[in-house]
Amino acid sequence: MLFAAINLLAAEGGESAAVNPVFPDSAGELVWGAIFFFLTWILLRYVCLPPLLKAREDRELQVQSDYEAAAAAEAAAEQVRRDYETTISEARLQAARMVEEVRVTVDAERGRQVLAVEQEIAEQRQAAMAELDSARTAALGQIVGDVADLAAAAASKVVQAPVDAAAVRPAVDDVVQRTGGSK
């Protein structure tokens, strides 16, 4: 009942309306709508948009070329860096080589000097040894003579007869040889 009442209210409201809200009853709206839409389209298409679109395209190209330039600059910078690195490594290599050379030279020089010094020392020692040997031989010879004289005198005293020193000499030599010769 309530439902029907609402419907009746609505029916009364729409009673005067033979009008259709969906379809236009005058051609004016259609005509003006079409005119204004096509004007919008045509003006945008041929007047307003071309400069703007061209500016956008130019900007895009500009950005593209700038980008490429940046890429090229980056590549150049990379090249420079690589060159620098090769130079550095070359220099480093050369320095190492020079150091090595110097080291070798210095080593050789040192070896030579050490050798010379050692040789000198050896010579000096040899000389000293020879001197020592000769001195000892001299001293030994003197001692042998003295001992032979002493032994001859002692022997003559013991045997109450003169003993020839020369006869004693081999024995004395033998003794000295056995005692003093061993140093």
Partner: peptide
């Protein structure tokens, strides 16, 4: 669009 397109800036 007309105002903008008279002098489109980069």
């Amino acid at each position: 669009f007309f105002i903008v397109s008279r002098k489109p800036a980069a």
